[in-house]
Design a protein around this nucleic acid. Structure first.
Lengths: 355, 355
DNA sequence: ACCATCATGGTAACCGCTTGCTATGGTTGA
DNA sequence: TCAACCATAGCAAGCGGTTACCATGATGGT
């Protein structure tokens, strides 16, 4: 940044121009104290005339809090995070808040750092988006940040991730990972599938854990035996979906359907199927999770679980500015199935192989 | 935001804890002034012990500039903006800068407001991403913001948009819209196409204007007559691509290829073709622009112009912190064609119709 | 006519950090 | 031994708002 200490117009300039004190100008700008109509008009006029824009840092310093909320995602480009970020940004804009965004790249350590950075900025709230690591040390450190943040008058809001623990000053908004997975696996089951491969999700990442749990519950409820060999844990990415399914197909896949743990993984699964010359859904049914745009771009269109991501983001933004003792500090938004063309009845029992 | 004036640990606390003055603590934290090794160690220790995080607002106020850069995009979810934002965010993180992101939703007025908001935050730089409106009043107002920003010690950087005018304190990084369009149209021409429909792009949006110009230049260079009926201006969206091509097909399309002004439009074009039962590229060749992930997800894979979006973002972030008189304040990054499967030789001269 | 009350506006003490300038003890050179 | 320097550290004046508290003139009740 250039070092020049720019001049810039200050409150005092406006005060001088309108012949009042800085206190008065501050008051008309904040609108939280009675000011005579005529005075207010003079000030407003001066502001416009001088093109004055208030120094947000000075205000934040004086008020002990910035009109800013922070959001930390894994990746700005990933549509899962993108839609949530959009919701947060839009609601924040409506509320007159600016939005600091940072990407953790999936690193727990980085995430912790980012929370501190956001603390430094005295963000009114910091939103942690997406699944979280199931890791003792991490939880402890994050819990400590949560307390510090609350102490400083900020809010920690968890968006789409489980609570940090009892009695911690956090609020959260999430969606039913387990339920959605239960529903979509049930759908597969209802269509007659009994051997379903589960592909995706980083080990110990809450999102994955819950989805897998829902999947498992559906199988149990339908009396389908659990088979560890059918679950493949790794990443929430197309690349992982592709290499995994390619490998499975190379070895011979004893399944008639695959539950891709998110839509990105499904993209990879489609690619692998295409490479191997096996047809979706004729030879293999596929379902995803999230319902991001790619689900409708794939052919056949992907059946998946729809999550109201933008709404999730909006609520998270809201939680940043509600008082601590709000009754509905923790809420859950629903998911629903969207059935498209990637599932059919299983063809016949056989081992699927590339080629 | 809760109104509680959080306690929080201050520089003074750290100073007390380590038995030095606040000046000294500030100095070890800034590392821009000699401090004895032992002293430094004591302070560092106290910082760690207390879990102190500096108040960024206070620092910004004292320094007259925040360690923050602002980026305004049209839409956070759109991958064109997403990749640029990712580049900005990553480079900013490397440089120790926080990143304020805001979405203009394509509104010029909103964009102007957002620049003011970023000015208020004393962002070291504000990055305006993507095409800009060719509108007199808008340019004037933005030029005024550019001056004010420079005056306050900030930088206005234009990313992927043309300069605001002569002598204005802005720097820019962009890519060759015209050249990329020229190249891809040339490719279509080389494959034998002579009737090419151009679909997409908001009227008077610079990105669109330049792409269309490149397209036109290629046609001229190949001696193909210009036909106004072949260009359809509207939006950079799949919806626009779809409705436009659907309508054209309904009326009977006298063309063998379509140049979708960006990949999103191409998605819509594919959909319309699919609806109409016409095959890409057999019946109709299609090309796009940007090379976002959807280009490889489409079937057939889309031939398009690759733009180094993330690199563009990184450079933009860098321009935020370089001194005004830097020699390379305006740079251009290259684009290149990526040829996939959406183009073939034209089948025969005939009118394409739905059904 | 007189004092309480109200509506406005001003004064000035912060908010937490930076930094120009000054102070101090220790070296060093003559 | 003494002056001239260094290397460090502290002092205190900001940076640009906010707001508790006080001042003032107008209004109104009796």
């Amino acid at each position: 940044m250039p070092s020049s200490r720019g001049s810039g117009i200050t409150l005092a300039d406006v005060a001088a121009a309108s012949g009042v004190s800085t206190a008065t100008v501050s008051r008309v700008l904040s609108g939280n104290y009675p000011v005579a109509t005529r005075t207010k008009a003079r000030v407003t006029e001066a502001v416009a005339e001088l093109g004055y824009v208030m120094n947000a840092n000075a205000r934040a310093l004086a008020r002990s809090r910035a009109a800013t909320i922070g959001i930390v995602v894994q990746d700005v480009v990933d549509p899962f995070f993108g839609y949530i970020a959009r919701g947060v940004e839009r609601r924040a804009a409506e509320l007159g808040l600016a939005c600091l965004i940072m990407a953790s790249q999936g690193s727990k350590e980085r995430e912790l750092e980012l929370v501190d950075l956001l603390r430094a900025h005295r963000a009114g709230g910091v939103i942690l988006v997406g699944g979280s690591a199931d890791d003792r040390g991490y939880r402890t450190k994050m819990a400590q940040r949560a307390r510090a943040l609350a102490d400083e008058g900020g809010n920690l809001v968890l968006c789409g991730r489980p609570p940090l623990g009892e009695g911690l000053p956090t609020r959260s908004v999430s969606y039913d990972n387990e339920g959605g997975a239960f529903a979509i696996t049930s759908h597969l089951l209802a269509r007659g599938h009994r051997r379903i491969a589960y592909v995706g999700g980083p080990h110990r990442l809450s999102t994955h854990t819950f989805r897998l749990a829902g999947h498992r519950r559906a199988l149990e409820q339908h009396g389908v035996a659990w088979d560890d060999d059918l679950v493949h844990v790794g990443q929430f990415s197309a690349a992982f979906g592709r290499t995994t399914l390619t490998e499975l197909l190379r070895r011979g896949l004893d399944a008639t359907a695959v539950f891709a743990a998110n839509d990105a993984v499904a993209v990879g699964v489609y690619e692998a199927a295409e490479d191997a010359g096996i047809s979706v859904p004729h030879d293999l049914s596929v379902v995803g999770y999230d319902d991001v745009p790619v689900a409708t771009q794939l052919r056949p269109r992907l059946s998946t679980v729809s999550v109201p991501l933008e709404e999730l983001g909006r609520r998270a933004a809201e939680l940043c500015i509600t008082e601590s003792d709000a009754p509905d500090a923790d809420s859950i938004v629903g998911t629903h199935l969207v059935l498209r063309d990637s599932v059919s009845a299983p063809r016949e029992a056989r081992i699927l192989r590339a080629g």
